[in-house]
Amino acid sequence: MRKARAVLVSAVVVLGASVMIGATPAQADARLSGVFRTSAECERIGAHGVAQGWWNDYSCVWEGRYRYYFLYA
């Protein structure tokens, strides 16, 4: 089951990256920084990234077709 989950998450990340290539200008400066199952986990990592100085701002976006939250920073 773990291998299947790892393959699924990898596929979602690749699909997310392909979505970013065709992103609108509003997200042109944002990059995909993570993929998460829950909103709380996405928000926690986003806030941690701000606290660590990895990025200045972030957004967690639910992608219903993938059923994951995408962290853009």
Rank of each mutant, 00 (worst) to 15 (best):
N56R: 15
W55G: 03
V13D: 02
A40D: 11
Y69N: 11
Y66R: 06
G16C: 04
T24M: 10
G22E: 09
C60V: 12
R31V: 14
Y58I: 10
S33T: 12
F70K: 05
P25V: 07
L15W: 10
L8T: 07
A26W: 07
A30E: 07
A30D: 15
Q27H: 09
D57C: 06
E63S: 03
R37L: 06
R67P: 04
R2E: 09
S39D: 06
V61N: 02
R67Q: 14
C42I: 02
M1H: 08
Q52S: 12
G46L: 10
C60P: 07
S39Y: 10
L15K: 15
I21P: 03
G46F: 06
W62L: 15
A6T: 06
V13R: 03
L8Q: 14
V35P: 02
G34M: 02
R2T: 09
P25S: 13
V19L: 15
G34D: 03
Q27D: 10
M20A: 15
S18A: 15
M20N: 03
W62R: 09
K3C: 01
A40E: 05
R37Y: 07
H48S: 11
G16N: 02
A6L: 11
W54C: 04
L15V: 03
A17E: 13
D57F: 09
E63M: 10
S59D: 12
Q52Y: 02
A51M: 08
G16V: 03
R65I: 03
L71W: 10
T38D: 11
Y69H: 15
Q27W: 10
R67E: 15
V9C: 02
A73E: 11
C42L: 08
C60Y: 00
G64Q: 09
R67Y: 07
V50N: 03
A23H: 08
W62T: 00
A28L: 05
A23R: 14
L32F: 08
F36W: 09
W55Y: 15
S10K: 14
D57K: 13
F70M: 14
Q52V: 11
V9G: 00
Q27R: 14
T38E: 05
R37V: 00
A51F: 06
A40M: 03
Y72V: 10
L32E: 02
S39H: 11
G53E: 02
F70G: 05
T24G: 13
L15H: 10
T38G: 04
M1K: 10
R5Y: 08
E41V: 01
E63Y: 13
I21S: 12
V14H: 11
H48R: 10
A4Y: 06
A28H: 10
G46D: 01
W54N: 14
R37E: 06
M20P: 04
Y69I: 04
V7D: 08
